[in-house]
């Protein structure tokens, strides 16, 4: 019973440390996003993924050609929050032909992001797994 006296004290000290260290949520919350993309289409080639913003600002995220059935390398970026991603692709399995773009907005929570691109009719379907 005597030892139990220290438990609230230790908890209180711990709470103080948490508060005084400005909280330390990054110990258990991801502050970067690691993206890998899988081309799950049969006849499209992915040329890359960019983050696009206002005034035609953009930043390349996945800068790699991904053929049908393949996956890209994992690329880590300091992007956590609400962003618009732009997918550049061609409607051919070998990457030839006209470059097309598709954009979609996402709220990224950080950590490992595995993006699967599927074709659905004429358009592409984005799915994070």
């Amino acid at each position: 019973m005597k030892k139990m006296k220290f438990v609230p004290l230790v908890l209180a000290l711990f709470a103080c440390c948490m508060a005084l260290s400005g909280c330390l949520s990054h110990w258990f919350v991801d502050s970067t996003s690691r993206l890998q993309v899988l081309n799950d289409t049969a006849d499209c080639t992915l040329l890359g993924i960019d983050v696009v913003g206002s005034d035609s600002t953009y930043k390349k995220w996945i800068d790699e050609t991904v053929f049908p059935g393949e996956r890209s390398r994992v690329v880590e970026e300091d992007l956590v929050g609400d962003f618009t991603l732009r997918l550049r692709y061609t409607k051919s399995p070998d990457g030839s032909g006209k470059e097309r773009v598709a954009t979609e907005s996402f709220s990224l929570d950080g950590g490992s992001l595995f993006l699967v691109i599927k074709s659905e009719g004429d358009s592409l379907l984005w799915k994070f797994k």
Binding site: C23, S25, V29, S31, V51, V52, G53, S54, D55, T57, Y58, K59, D78, L79, V80, G81, D82, F83, T84
Partner: peptide, 17 residues
């Protein structure tokens, strides 16, 4: 306490932090 409290609005989007 939460990183949604002071997000940064850059040209790229809304960054949590």
């Amino acid at each position: 306490p939460a990183r949604t409290q002071t997000p940064l609005l850059s040209d790229y989007g809304k960054h949590e932090g």
